[in-house]
Every structure is written in C-alpha cells, then in structure tokens.
Write a protein that binds this DNA or RNA. Structure first.
Lengths: 192, 192
DNA sequence: CGTATTTCTTAACTTAAGTGAACAAGCGAT
DNA sequence: ATCGCTTGTTCACTTAAGTTAAGAAATACG
C-alpha cells in the first residue's frame, strides 16, 4: 500500500529513507466505505486526497439535482478548490466504491515543504502538470459534441464506463441521463 | 510597466531589491503587434507569458475551423501545456490586440527556482491557485447551458464581450457564432 | 427470499443548437 | 474612395438535447 504512494512520488522526486519515514510518520492512510461523503457543500476543509485503490467523485447539488463533474481513481490526486481559496466548499466529495486513500491537510504540507524543499518542488511540478492536463481536458470538452466526448471517454477512461453509474457519467459529459442512453443507442446503430 | 509585474508578484511573495533586479536582468519584457502568432500548432516551445497590457487567445484549428478555448488579459499568466509536457503544441497562441507581456522560458525558471527558493514557492502557489480556479470554471461550464454561460460571462468578464469578436466568443462558449447571435436576441426579448 | 429503491431505457413532445445560405455592416489596404 | 474580406445577423431547415412520463432491469436490504 505504501509502495503505491512511493512509486507514484518517485516519478517526480527521489526520496531518501528518512524522508519516506517522515511521510509515514504523518499517518495519512485511510480506508473509507462506499457511500461515505468526504466533504460537504458549505464545509471548510484543508484536506487533499490521493487515491490508492477505489474511486471518488466531486458533485454539486443544483436545484436538487446532483451534477457530477469529476472522478478520481487509482494514482490520482484531488485538492478541492476550497482548500486553496480557504472558503466554504461549493461541492461534495463522495466515495463511489470502498476506497483506500491518503488524507493530508494543507498545514501539514506547509510544514513539510518548509522542512524538505524537495517536497515543495514535488508540489510545484505536480500542480503544473495537473494544470496542463486539466487545460487539455477542458479544451477537448469545449471543442466537441456530447457524442464525441463519450467516444473520447471510451478511449481515455474505459474503466469509468464500467465502474460508474450512467447518470453520473451523463452529467460528467454535460448532458442528461436520457440523452446518454439515446446517444449510446445511436452509436450502436451506426456501427451496424 | 515593471511595477505591474512586481505588484502582481507581491500578492504571492515579497521580493528584495536584489531579487527584483535579478528578474529585470533577464530582460523578459516584450511588445507585440495585434495579429502576431506567438505559438503555432506542432511547434515546441518553452515560453510562458504574463500579460501586462492587451489580450491574447489560445485556439485550435479543427477541420479548418478556429476553435478559441481561452483568453488571457491584464495580470494573467499562460503556460501552454506543451511547455509542461515537452511535446509539440496542440494549439495556437495569437494576439488579439497590441500587447505588452513578459516571455520567460522554462530553463530560465528552473535556474531561478534553484537560486531563489522563494520563486519556487511563488510558482507552486500560483499554479495551485490557477488549478483551483480553472477547476471551478470547468465545472461551471459543464453544469450550465450556453445561455447561462453567456450570462455568466457578462458578469465575470464583461470586458471580453467588448474587446473580443463574437465568433471567437462563441467557440469560447462552446457554440457556433449563429447560435450566439440567436441566443443574444433571445435574451433581449426576455428582458422586454 | 421478496420488496423497495435505484438505475437504465424507451417514447412522444418541446426547445435549442447545428447547418447552409444570403445579406448588411464594418474595416483594412491600396 | 473603393474594393475585398471579415464579421455579425437573420432565416429556413435539420439534428440533437431537454422534459415528462412510463416501465423494465438491476441492486440493496430487511
């Protein structure tokens, strides 16, 4: 379990045993049950998550309707915007499956960054990379139709289509569940 | 002109005169004419931009059509994804107006980060903040209709509606120029 | 088990965006 | 001042998504 974390981190910086132990001493590993809500709308939080196993999602409650905007699975990091802006959260974070993750709070990170400059570099590189990746995703979303987005999802994240309920996928694609059903039927028709 | 840059930076870190001079020594200020293309599709680049005055946009060329995905104006930073991924650019960067900006390349930044840890912190905080901001924008886009997006844009970036051509605004909103025209007529009708 | 709830699909109808085309206004360059 | 190109609007028509509703299938749970 620890290995998954360190394998991930080794892609960005190489850590000494001392540094690894410092990380482990923080006792950040958590196991949470499917259905758990990690963060509520309106709540303040300083926690970031790194998924070791399982799946979580972020969603808004708009006019009584859940709007899912992102999924995070194995080896992915989520720092909710409210942690950065220090304001109440605009969205919920919930577990779609039994999930193992690390929970680290921003005070802790500040301190670690001060103690080990290497971590500051890690955080900078990681967020630069996430920013670029998210920009590409955003652009792809803007420049394509719901159908193209769905076909793209099949290519890029085939696992999500298996493990996530359709109506959550639908709002992730920016449409209603009924439209996703129809769209899928349309694609099947074309193939034949 | 330098003051605009230092005012911006002072929101994140406080710089000594020595540090300021080190920055100025890099000679990063540029003045570019309206219409200039700063980055082409397929091109490799290490340059990031900070806009002091004017406006630039990023756009894709898809099936011979320009798809504008972002605008950057006064006090905004753009690091194209290709700079981070070190791969050829997927999009163009062009100037909508005569623009004054700084151009800094990533090698330069690496070095500055090594010399002044303060800059590393600056870069980390800035990209964390941009990541969070972009996430909020992306979510808002996904969870709203073209009409809501347009109304939202009037609230959040009224300047863009004045200074940017409609057809570029349209693709920024994820629709065709004709649809934007119609949508605006529809809104006017509702008001009366 | 079997019942309740959630999830998914289908269908008919409404609304809005995409498409193709025509036209007018604005702007830039000569 | 004029010619040409870019830009914005309008219209008729097509296509696809939103809405409302009903029912089937899968899943959760007592």
């Amino acid at each position: 379990m620890k290995d998954i974390l360190f394998d991930f981190l080794s892609k960005y910086v190489s850590l000494t045993d001392d540094e690894k132990n410092a990380l482990l001493a923080l006792d950040i590993f958590r196991s949470v049950k499917k259905g758990t809500v990690l963060l509520q709308e309106g709540q303040k939080s300083k926690d970031s998550y790194f998924i070791l196993k399982g799946c979580i999602r972020t969603y808004y409650l708009i006019d009584g309707e859940e709007k899912t905007t992102a999924f995070y699975t194995e080896m992915e990091v989520l720092t909710p915007p409210c942690v950065i802006s220090k304001t109440p959260s605009e969205y919920y974070v919930g577990c779609l499956e039994d999930t193992i993750l690390t929970v680290s709070n921003s005070d802790m990170e500040e301190e670690t960054n001060r103690k080990f400059p290497k971590f500051e570099t890690l955080c900078r590189v990681l967020s630069e990379e996430l920013l670029a990746k998210q920009r590409i995703d955003f652009d792809a979303f803007k420049t394509s139709s719901p159908e193209q987005r769905y076909l793209n999802l099949i290519q890029k994240r085939p696992d999500l289509i298996q493990r996530v309920p359709q109506h959550q996928l639908a709002s992730y694609l920016g449409i209603k569940p009924q439209s996703l059903s129809r769209l899928r039927a349309r694609i099947l028709e074309k193939k034949s």
